[in-house]
């Protein structure tokens, strides 16, 4: 008997309409709709799309949890063995919806799921660690390539076969590092890679580095004597006891702390939450990481307008770039709202 599959798509791929129909509420249709037709061909007689869940992109974005729960419910009702969502290519809301429903169904029902997204779709960074995501092109022109990959990855999971390395399966990396055995030791592999690089020949890295971005420089502060300066740190300085439980590595949050009237960060009043470096010196005198004492002096002398009465802190140790970026955006917003002109960011 064929495996039963439920398929999630948005209003556009269902043929309901574009942006003007992005608010449409969910509906479930039996059988295939839109790209489900091509998936049906790729799945062959091993699996059958029994129902299609359709939801407008804005409706999903505004009701993420409720719609995810409805998809879980539909999967239950149709006794689905698996879920396919998308492909969503580089459509941000749709991609986030596809990845979200995959994660929700996987968590609730523990059945195979898969979606297909463009590498930079925001859904990727949100869910890449939880669900398999086929790497798709940035537009629907990539449908022809994404569909067979989706079918293959789903059938493999349904049959209980292990998925191979991301590059072999056409999947985006989950970021898992696995021990491998090689004939050649690491030093030899590294040197032969370097020689290839020097010759300009292609080579495949064993551990891809994340891509870093560039920032347009801001104009300088015109008059430091009237400027409000804030302190932000990735060195983990927090009030003693670490009230917000910022993790010693792979931080999941940042803290915001009032230092009104504080002229010096004293041992026993403040500490570092940071792992990975010897905390002795930072705990003895937290000003060694967050220079509140000096900035208070400069404030008193009139060299700066004022020290912003709130500082922000997180831990840099092993924290994901995407996470750090989201902290930065939120901290930046709060500093801007508080009319801070410049920030000194200290790191350990």
């Amino acid at each position: 008997m064929a495996y039963r599959v439920i398929h999630y798509i948005n209003q556009f791929f269902a043929g309901i309409g574009g942006e003007e129909k992005a608010d449409v509420a969910p509906e479930v249709r039996e059988g295939v709709v839109g790209p489900g037709m091509a998936l049906k061909g790729a799945l062959g007689n091993e699996a059958e799309i029994v129902a299609t869940f359709i939801c407008g992109d804005n409706h999903f974005a505004n009701n993420m949890e409720a719609v995810s729960a409805q998809v879980v419910e539909a999967a239950r009702k149709y006794r689905a063995d698996a879920l396919i969502a998308g492909p969503a290519f580089n459509a941000g809301r749709y991609g986030t919806a596809c990845a979200s429903v995959c994660a929700a169904v996987k968590n609730a029902l523990d059945i195979p799921v898969v979606t297909a997204l463009y590498r930079e779709n925001p859904g990727v960074d949100l869910f890449r660690k939880e669900i398999p995501i086929v790497e798709a092109a940035d537009s629907a022109r990539g449908m022809g390539k994404a569909v067979p990959a989706l079918a293959r990855v789903l059938l493999k999971q349904l049959k209980g076969e292990a998925l191979g390395a991301p590059a072999e399966e056409g999947l985006l990396e989950k970021g898992i590092r696995q021990n491998m055995f090689y004939e050649q030791p690491g030093a030899e592999r590294a040197v032969s890679m370097l020689i290839k690089k020097l010759k300009g020949e292609p080579f495949v890295t064993e551990y891809a580095m994340p891509v870093f971005d560039r920032v347009t420089p801001r104009p300088p502060v015109a008059d430091m004597r009237t400027a409000r300066i804030a302190l932000v740190t990735s060195g983990g300085i927090v009030p003693f006891g670490n009230p917000d439980h910022i993790a010693a590595s792979s931080a999941q949050n940042f803290g915001q702390y009032d230092i009104t009237g504080v002229t010096d960060l004293l041992q026993g009043k403040y500490q570092t939450a940071h792992g990975g470096y010897d905390q002795t010196y930072a705990n003895q005198d937290p000003d060694r990481v967050l220079p509140v004492d000096v900035l208070r002096d400069l404030e008193k002398e009139g060299a700066i307008g004022s020290l912003h009465p709130v500082f922000y802190s997180t831990v840099g140790n092993g924290t994901a770039v995407a996470k750090a970026k989201s902290f930065g955006i939120e901290i930046g917003k709060r500093l801007k709202d508080a009319q801070v002109q410049a920030v000194i960011l200290t790191s350990t």
Binding site: D213, Q279, Y281, D285, R288, T348
Partner: peptide, 21 residues
């Protein structure tokens, strides 16, 4: 430099960037 910071001041040491015990 790798993360795109534009104004960089080198400091003392990882466990005490703004101090020296």
């Amino acid at each position: 430099l790798s993360i795109g910071a534009n104004r960089i001041v080198p400091t003392v040491s990882i466990p005490h960037p703004l101090g020296n015990p």
